[in-house]
Design a protein around this nucleic acid. Structure first.
Lengths: 207, 207
DNA sequence: CGCGCGTTCGAACGATCGTTCAAATGGAAC
DNA sequence: GTTCCATTTGAACGATCGTTCGAACGCGCG
């Protein structure tokens, strides 16, 4: 019968805020909007949070932390580089699809933080990017030089995965499993899956 | 000796506004910021533009129009589906890299417009997406069923290409040609370029 | 010079923003 | 019943927002 604890109420606030931020955007959303969405008064919000920016920071850092943690667990013990990539993609899309609002806020409001908040989130970003780059290096060690610059490949994969908040509906006719499978195949084997002759590439045919 | 015409001054204003919007974000930027950046008074901005939202709309629609126009020209007369894809990617990244600020505003501030402005930009988005989907259909007709759902593939490609405003520096050590080549190879042939056994995919190995 | 007109400006409008604070509330402990 | 403390609130603060408007400017033309 015990009422919700303080941390639980903060979580509720963060969850409601993530939804509103995802819909309206961080800067378009007022603290009064958040108060209305979470069912407390305007001043009540400030009992749980020091500022609007800290609220955004908590949404971003907590979810990023969770993504990194589950990613490390998903890769733990897996030695095959190709499967490690698959696990990385799978973990990212799984978490994204089941936390759409929070992950849209993390992806789309990256530039809204400043100072220490920004630096801490950027540190996580560096750590996460480094993890992917390391896996890509493993792949190249096992399968020889890749078809693409490693940095371009890494950021292209992040682009594929993070862009989904612009179009993907977890409740639509494309399940998360299918989405993850498709992105894995796309990144690893490409769309056509056949060796692409350099002569067909526009840059070389135009030069 | 003739001074700049009215349209030229509007272009200058739009260009300055795109830079500020790209750096600070649309909603964080005030009309006073734009006035300062374009060297006119606050009221002077309203002589060329009816509202802040129309200013954003003009940036988005003009550049989207340009991308679509150059895309149609780049694909004109090219019959090989693979090369059509290459041209599509090449055109997109070329324009993106040479209009970074404007294209970041187009990609990142998609949800900032409302009403008629939003609808018109969404119409262009539908047209552009349709063009890519048609090319993908051609590819599948020529090379058989693809490795990935067509819609997932299309939006993944858009994700790869539009995400670059988060990391790519046109003046860095990765040239636009290399970027375009890499994205082409990634999308068409994948990162490793080898046939990926389904057993290595996490979804099927975990089930 | 003076008239007209496209252009620019300073000043102000009401609205809304993030944040603060003293006061009110409510239930557990004595 | 009274004290205590965590929680919640209404009201207000100064700042900044997008937008408007009448006046001033600059310059070619009579």
């Amino acid at each position: 019968m015990a009422g919700p604890t303080r941390d639980q109420k903060l979580d509720t606030l963060l969850s409601a805020a993530a939804k509103v931020f995802a819909e309206r955007g961080y800067h378009e959303t007022s603290m009064r909007d958040l108060a209305r969405a979470s069912g407390v008064s305007l001043a009540g919000v400030y009992y749980y949070v020091q500022s609007k920016e800290q609220l955004l920071y908590l949404i971003q850092s907590r979810n990023f932390e969770a993504v990194i943690t589950t990613m490390r667990a998903a890769l733990d013990g897996v030695t095959d580089p190709i499967e490690r990539i698959g696990r990385f993609i799978d973990n990212h899309l799984d978490y994204f699809a089941s936390h759409m609002a929070e992950m849209k806020v993390l992806s789309h409001e990256a530039g809204a933080l400043q100072g220490d908040y920004l630096q801490k989130v950027n540190d996580m970003k560096r750590e996460y990017t480094r993890a992917l780059m390391d896996v890509l290096a493993d792949v190249e060690r096992a399968h020889g030089p890749a078809h693409s610059n490693r940095r371009v490949a890494a950021y292209s994969l992040f682009g594929m995965m993070n862009w989904i908040y612009n179009w993907y509906d977890p409740l639509g006719d494309i399940g998360v499993e299918m989405l993850s499978q498709n992105v894995c195949h796309l990144f690893l084997g490409g769309y056509v899956g056949l060796p692409v002759s350099d002569a067909a590439m526009p840059r070389s045919s135009a030069g």
